[in-house]
Design a protein around this nucleic acid. Sequence first.
DNA 1: ATATCTTTGCGTCAAATTAACGCAATAAAG
DNA 2: CTTTATTGCGTTAATTTGACGCAAAGATAT
Lengths: 230, 230
Amino acid sequence: MEEKNYCYKYPHPAVTSDCVIFGFDGVAIKVLLIQRGIEPYKDKWAFPGGFMQIDETVEECAKRELEEETGLKTTSVEQFYTFSDVNRDPRERVITVAHYALVRLEEVKGGDDAMSAQWFAMNEIPSLAFDHDRILRIAVNRLKERICFEPIGFELLPEIFTMSALQNLYEAILEMKFDRRNFYNKMLKLGILSEAEERPKNASRRTPIKYRFNAKKYAELKQKGFRLEF
Amino acid sequence: MEEKNYCYKYPHPAVTSDCVIFGFDGVAIKVLLIQRGIEPYKDKWAFPGGFMQIDETVEECAKRELEEETGLKTTSVEQFYTFSDVNRDPRERVITVAHYALVRLEEVKGGDDAMSAQWFAMNEIPSLAFDHDRILRIAVNRLKERICFEPIGFELLPEIFTMSALQNLYEAILEMKFDRRNFYNKMLKLGILSEAEERPKNASRRTPIKYRFNAKKYAELKQKGFRLEF
DNA sequence: ATATCTTTGCGTCAAATTAACGCAATAAAG
DNA sequence: CTTTATTGCGTTAATTTGACGCAAAGATAT
């Protein structure tokens, strides 16, 4: 018989944080899911997440649960919506604050044996536990909006990347195709890319220029107010 | 001695919903505040809001509390951020889901005797209870972002309005000035305004054209994906 | 009354931006 | 060895933006 030692005058819901983690493999956007080991929804796939402790914020909770369940240590998650439908969890009243983060695929040893975390391409997502399908839909919309205003995409790429890698990423997220030459010009004109390494003199046309994200230039731009548009 | 009948195995936070209600008096943006009648922060101004009941969503809670505290019945509120700092309420651990809504000023009998709700212009906001200063800052930012993508501004105007009333609203929210003629052209080109009434033949130049928001046209536009820009 | 200021509708025009596409070099694939 | 794909660097026309002109006539001040 379990003890219930925390008592209140009025009913309180439980609060959880969930994490929608996006990655990019060079071709498609992927999300990180874990397979539930316990009821409810045992064996179903779900987002990493769990109950908030009484002495942590929802963001701290999201990062803690993410690391516990997937081994992934991320510096920042961003909350995007709080789901509070009355019956979203069969155990008790639970509201969840959903977060998202963008990570480089290498950072997760996905498909580990210890952790049952696994990357899924957007078109291969299995049926999810709880209301996580809805959470995913909203997360994807938020990602699409966000990428047009902040250069968060760089968090998904290796530190050094080519222009076509960047274009592939934008095309994958926004589900659009862009003219290669116009994309190239637009990105360069923004001024937030720096050439990453000296180009060898013998470099041929087919050897692409390598870039890195210039956070300093971006900060200046942001100060003035600007917009990344597509 | 009060009874505490709701017991849990782990500590649970209380959950509240707060409402940042925006209005527009033709010149300035205003927000609706209530004066607290009880501790903590007794007599301080705060956003309408209160504890979520166990059988309602956070949005339902926001609307219910708003009506209870200000008499304002609004059809929709939109949540924009969940505040979860550990010590944001001295009584117990409370996380709050903050919402915003835009209403026409007439709809609130502000400054009533019964209700201590009152409209404040943005530059006359008193010091607020809890972390409500921070909530307001974030709400204002969200409003600015939002007005550029969705024509939510119409919710703040009377059903029938003139172009310069609309421009005043945008200028008040975005804290910018626009060229009257360019604003006029841009708005008309969007195609989401309809002329509200036949213009009398004897109408002079100084009699402005009256418009109303064309929700149908807007829905069509939104389908295709578009952007309201300033 | 008379002069001045303000508001409104409607336009103009140059500058900037966008969108579509050409071309040559050359690595990679068949 | 031929074909295909990728990359850097353009060009050009269409569109959009931003700054501003102008006249009619109500509002305001003298």
